[in-house]
Design a protein around this nucleic acid. Structure first.
Lengths: 120, 120
DNA sequence: CGGTATCCTGATAGATACTG
DNA sequence: CAGTATCTATCAGGATACCG
């Protein structure tokens, strides 16, 4: 039994799952889209630090993985909206669990109150 | 508020959590150790494809992250055992969730019954 | 506005060999 | 048996520019 994602085979479902959001900006994107449908520009604005190429690339990969649905409106100027598929929404609880576990490493040593950027 | 792991700062607990097991062999290692304490050689034998340097390196990173505890027996030849810390064991449910989600991508298209290698 | 192509760089993975 | 060091290949991330 194998697990198939984007033409790549994984012997283990866990490794596949991790590969889905191991990309540099994918978590941020998924967190954004868990809040609902968003335009490309909104994502770009909300995810601090991401550049144009990266955002487009990671979105395409998420789309190919069946996590994200892309909707193109044939207007000028172009308008493109992204939202999670049902499969993608299934990541909600996974993300919650990861957040919960990650919070063990919390520190307020820095006086800075940066909050959790990028909608996470 | 920031999240600190191995001297690196993360604005988001989820990204930190992912970084913990994003390494090439870390999932396999954690899955192995969820089964209980293991010697280095056992890990090497059970995790197919990993090489010596990689295994040692990833183990050290997991150790530094406080996920894995390393126990050295001062004997000749050397004997070293690895086990999960309490923090590491807390990854159990996370891993379960990831597995459950990853199984959506299951396929038996290949006649091969490779099973889920590496103890996952 | 949004997508794609090119190029560059640093990080990561792997092979190999030497050490106690 | 287990750890470390060195070298090399590969890839992901990022800056930039051009296209529809």
């Amino acid at each position: 039994m194998m697990y198939l994602l984007n033409g790549k085979e994984y012997p283990c479902p866990i490794e596949l799952a991790v590969s889905v959001f191991a990309g540099r900006w994918k978590i941020s994107i998924i967190c954004q889209l868990l809040q609902g449908k968003k335009r490309y520009g909104e994502l770009k604005k909300n995810i601090t630090g991401v550049n144009h190429k990266m955002l487009a690339e990671q979105l395409r990969e998420l789309e190919e993985a069946g996590i994200v649905k892309r909707e193109v409106y044939p207007v000028v100027p172009p308008k493109v909206e992204y939202e999670l598929t049902e499969l993608g929404k299934g990541l909600g609880p996974v993300i919650d669990y990861l957040r919960e576990w990650g919070e063990h490493f919390q520190t307020d040593a820095t006086g800075e109150s940066l909050s959790t950027a990028n909608g996470s």
